[in-house]
Design a binder for these strands. Structure first.
Length: 561
DNA sequence: CAGGAAATAT
DNA sequence: GATATTTCCT
């Protein structure tokens, strides 16, 4: 959608050189596809045998930029295996079968797209979008470099193309910009801290609007104003790469890959400089390339690969759900009382983030907690719906807790999902855990996982309980279908605040995990039962004594590490 | 200098 | 109006 047909036609020769691995057991189909792809200048490597394809991928991963795998009814597993094995290779699945669940599964397993056959030129033409142009730390990035560059120049060519006369204008402005902010040319990558990890974030889409001319004329003033000497933070930079720069970095931190991307800013201020922190769950490659340079227009990046630096002046931290999650986890871990900006910052380990950023976020976070939670509490307790929401279906675990009105502390988080009575619903039915709520952080990440981010359990117990959230998410990703069951409404069920309970297995697993690893934070949404509650519970079950270790996480874990 | 709250800016 | 940044006070 970002690219119009026109754009594409102008780029017609763009994908030239992009290497496509084609796996299709039907040689006819394969041949046909191959020729189509080749007609578009893709370089196609055909495989009719999955194992061969896989070995090719593993032996020379850099040889493929994207894979197109066809799956047929009888041998679905094959492609799943491919997906699972060739994780680093953006894989597009194609098939005659158009089964939503299969599609979902494929996506959940990491496929970047599912195309139904027949594959039209139109469909094929865009496959390059899935190439991880910015994927650093992968061989891929290297091999794709030429393509990337090609794309870049293509982009600018096109721009100039559209409006030759602007070129001058651009140049002029651009030049000034560069001079101002760019004391020293060349790649300044080393100067700035790189983000923390490699990820497979896909390159953003380049939107080249023919209209950019308009903006080309826009004024570019802000540039002059400041270049804070203490560049505040987020400066990532890698050398070339036009509009969007994604920096890889250090070591893989498992699920907490974090990356920072920097958008090129548009002089016109439309979407000024902005930095986006985002992370990907490691599980499936998430391909939410949100960071997209709106319009490369004015500040043509072409003249300035140095744009990076020019950019790095003032960037705005975008508290994406992922980033926020990290934040929350950090706060959790520290405990509400220990949660101070500097510590949180440390825990988050997000390159480029500053203490100020965190402080600011924390401020807001606290505010929300104070205002939102109390209300929720009052609203919720008086009702009798805890019963089924409870993790312990057999009985309401907690009697009505006294309403602690204010201190944001004591109030045990309510049950599974507090909060957002209705808002959560929306995503309760989603089927694509991969989707990322792009906007506000009212994001409700995943169904069943928890509710409002703010309302999260970052509570009193010094040892937060949220990290497991990640796990929950993963589980859910793994079982994309579980939610289907949510739909069927058991008649009698009062539509309690939260009906979309995750699949039981998921809950089980999480609970089990929580039980077996008491030292880990509880999953969001799970509330440690109070000691009293537990005792009462046990006694009702005829158990009057209990081993010491059973003591509630709640009351005892004050491990002030 | 850091944390936190309030004022500003976008 | 919300959210992020900056400023100011402690």
């Amino acid at each position: 959608m970002i690219c119009t047909t026109n754009d594409l036609s102008e780029w017609k020769d763009f994908p030239k050189g992009l290497k496509v691995l084609l796996l299709d057991e039907d040689s006819n189909s394969a041949a046909e596809l191959k020729s189509k792809l080749e007609a578009m200048d893709y370089i196609v490597y055909t495989f009719c045998n999955e194992n061969e394809a896989l070995s090719a991928v593993s032996s020379r991963p850099e040889s493929f930029h994207v894979a197109i795998v066809e799956i047929n009814t009888n041998k679905k597993n094959g492609s799943f295996k491919f997906l699972e094995t060739a994780k680093n290779l953006p894989t597009i699945l194609t098939s005659n079968i158009h089964c939503i669940s299969t599609m979902m599964k494929c996506i959940a397993l990491g496929a970047v797209e599912f195309l139904k056959k027949p594959l039209s030129e139109e469909k094929l033409r865009n496959i390059w979008q899935h190439v991880a142009f910015n994927s650093v730390g992968t061989d891929l990035s290297e091999s794709v470099k030429p393509v990337k560059e090609s794309l870049v120049s293509m982009l600018y060519l096109q721009l100039e193309n559209g409006e030759p006369k602007n070129k001058d204008l651009d140049k002029t402005q651009d030049a000034s910009v560069i001079h101002e902010n760019d004391p020293e040319p060349s790649t300044g990558s080393d100067k700035y801290p790189a983000p923390s990890t490699p990820q497979l974030e896909q390159g953003g889409r380049l939107s080249a609007d023919g209209d950019c001319q308009d903006q080309a004329n826009c004024s570019i003033e802000k540039e002059s104003s400041e270049q804070d000497g203490e560049s505040k933070s987020v400066e990532t930079t890698s050398d070339n790469t036009i509009a969007e720069v994604t920096i890889p970095v250090g070591q893989p931190l498992g699920p907490r890959d974090t990356m920072v991307t920097e958008e090129a800013d548009l002089v016109d201020g439309t979407k000024g400089e902005s930095t986006t922190y985002s992370q990907t769950e490691n599980g499936v490659n998430s391909k939410n390339s949100q960071a997209v340079a709106e319009k490369p227009s004015t500040v043509s990046g072409i003249h300035s690969s140095c744009l990076n630096k020019a950019n790095r002046k003032k960037s705005k931290v975008d508290w994406t759900p992922a980033l926020h999650k990290k934040f929350v986890q950090a706060v959790d871990q520290l405990g509400i009382d220990q949660a101070i900006p500097s510590r949180i910052l440390e825990l988050m380990k997000v390159e480029g983030l500053t203490r100020h950023n965190v402080a600011s976020h924390l401020q807001k976070y606290r505010m929300h907690r104070k205002h939102i939670l109390p209300k929720e509490d009052n609203r919720r307790w008086p009702q009798r719906d805890q019963t089924q929401r409870s993790c312990y279906p057999h009985k309401p675990i907690i009697a009505f807790p006294p309403h602690y009105s204010n201190h944001d502390v004591p109030v045990g988080p309510l049950y599974p999902m507090w909060g957002a009575p209705s808002s959560i619903q929306m995503w309760g039915s989603q089927g694509y855990p991969l989707w990322q709520p792009t906007e506000s952080w009212h994001w409700k990440p995943y169904p069943g996982a928890h509710a409002d981010a703010w309302g999260c359990p970052v509570m009193p117990p010094p040892h937060g309980y949220s990290s497991a959230f990640t796990q929950v998410s993963s589980y859910q990703n793994a079982s994309v279908f579980h939610c289907s069951g949510t739909m069927d409404n058991r008649s009698g069920m009062p539509q309690n605040s939260v009906e979309h309970q995750p699949a039981e297995e998921v809950i089980d697993k999480v609970v089990k995990e929580a039980i077996s690893k008491p030292w880990l934070p509880l999953p969001l949404g799970l509330k440690p039962p109070s000691t009293d509650t537990v005792l009462a519970d046990l006694s009702k079950q005829g158990i009057s004594t209990f081993p010491p270790h059973i003591n509630g996480p709640n009351s005892s874990c004050h491990g002030t590490t």
